[in-house]
Deep mutational scan, measured.
Amino acid sequence: QVNIAPGSLDKALNQYAAHSGFTLSVDASLTRGKQSNGLHGDYDVESGLQQLLDGSGLQVKPLGNNSWTLEP
């Protein structure tokens, strides 16, 4: 069960990665100043990332080996 409060997208993504045990490689300029609506409930990694990114204009991309990145 994930419980991440709304706020900074950077912070939300870092909390989610730490909670879910995956690696997220992101260029900080992509997420700077963006906000997230947070995340509450049970999600697989990709669904949770998509939910956190909702409205940010960013997309999640798998890199393999439980690693992910973001792209515009």
Score class of each variant (00 low, 15 high):
residue 50 Q to S: 11
residue 2 V to T: 06
residue 69 T to W: 07
residue 36 S to N: 02
residue 64 G to V: 02
residue 4 I to G: 03
residue 22 F to I: 15
residue 40 H to D: 08
residue 24 L to N: 04
residue 58 L to H: 00
residue 15 Q to M: 11
residue 46 E to G: 11
residue 50 Q to F: 08
residue 66 N to G: 11
residue 3 N to G: 03
residue 31 T to H: 00
residue 64 G to A: 05
residue 16 Y to N: 03
residue 30 L to P: 03
residue 45 V to G: 04
residue 11 K to T: 13
residue 2 V to P: 04
residue 49 L to A: 01
residue 15 Q to A: 12
residue 66 N to D: 08
residue 60 V to D: 00
residue 62 P to I: 09
residue 65 N to A: 09
residue 12 A to V: 15
residue 61 K to H: 08
residue 6 P to W: 05
residue 17 A to W: 03
residue 9 L to I: 02
residue 32 R to V: 11
residue 12 A to K: 01
residue 51 Q to V: 13
residue 17 A to C: 09
residue 26 V to I: 13
residue 55 G to F: 03
residue 42 D to G: 08
residue 36 S to R: 00
residue 10 D to P: 03
residue 26 V to N: 01
residue 45 V to C: 08
residue 21 G to I: 03
residue 25 S to D: 12
residue 27 D to Y: 03
residue 48 G to C: 05
residue 54 D to F: 14
residue 32 R to K: 12
residue 58 L to V: 03
residue 55 G to Q: 06
residue 28 A to Y: 08
residue 1 Q to K: 13
residue 31 T to P: 02
residue 38 G to Q: 02
residue 8 S to A: 12
residue 58 L to R: 01
residue 11 K to A: 14
residue 26 V to D: 06
residue 27 D to L: 07
residue 71 E to K: 02
residue 47 S to F: 09
residue 12 A to R: 04
residue 43 Y to Q: 03
residue 54 D to V: 15
residue 3 N to V: 12
residue 39 L to F: 01
residue 44 D to M: 06
residue 56 S to A: 07
residue 72 P to D: 07
residue 48 G to P: 01
residue 58 L to W: 03
residue 46 E to T: 08
residue 59 Q to N: 09
residue 18 A to C: 13
residue 51 Q to W: 07
residue 59 Q to C: 14
residue 52 L to W: 02
residue 20 S to W: 15
residue 62 P to Y: 15
residue 25 S to M: 15
residue 16 Y to G: 03
residue 33 G to E: 05
residue 16 Y to C: 07
residue 64 G to C: 07
residue 36 S to F: 03
residue 51 Q to R: 13
residue 45 V to E: 00
residue 7 G to S: 07
residue 58 L to Y: 02
residue 23 T to Y: 11
residue 55 G to Y: 03
residue 19 H to D: 12
residue 64 G to R: 00
residue 35 Q to H: 13
residue 24 L to R: 02
residue 37 N to H: 10
residue 48 G to E: 01
residue 27 D to K: 06
residue 37 N to Q: 12
residue 72 P to I: 12
residue 36 S to D: 01
residue 27 D to A: 07
residue 16 Y to E: 03
residue 31 T to R: 00
residue 33 G to T: 04
residue 16 Y to D: 03
residue 32 R to T: 10
residue 37 N to S: 10
residue 56 S to E: 00
residue 37 N to A: 12
residue 33 G to P: 00
residue 11 K to H: 13
residue 69 T to Y: 10
residue 61 K to T: 07
residue 43 Y to H: 07
residue 42 D to Q: 13
residue 42 D to L: 14
residue 46 E to Y: 14
residue 2 V to Q: 05
residue 53 L to M: 04
residue 10 D to F: 13
residue 59 Q to T: 13
residue 34 K to M: 09
residue 22 F to Y: 01
residue 71 E to M: 11
residue 42 D to C: 15
residue 49 L to Y: 01
residue 61 K to Q: 06
residue 23 T to C: 14
residue 66 N to Q: 06
residue 68 W to L: 06
residue 63 L to F: 07
residue 10 D to T: 10
residue 27 D to M: 06
residue 22 F to Q: 07
residue 6 P to K: 08
residue 27 D to P: 09
residue 46 E to H: 11
residue 8 S to T: 10
residue 53 L to H: 00
residue 11 K to Q: 14
residue 22 F to C: 11
residue 72 P to E: 12
residue 56 S to C: 08
residue 52 L to T: 01
residue 47 S to A: 12
residue 37 N to M: 12
residue 15 Q to C: 12
residue 58 L to I: 06
residue 46 E to Q: 13
residue 51 Q to T: 12
residue 1 Q to S: 13
residue 72 P to R: 08
residue 56 S to V: 04
residue 33 G to L: 06
residue 40 H to R: 13
residue 61 K to G: 03
residue 44 D to H: 06
residue 13 L to N: 01
residue 67 S to E: 14
residue 3 N to I: 12
residue 19 H to V: 14
residue 69 T to M: 12
residue 9 L to Y: 01
residue 56 S to W: 04
residue 20 S to N: 11
residue 66 N to W: 05
residue 36 S to K: 00
residue 38 G to L: 03
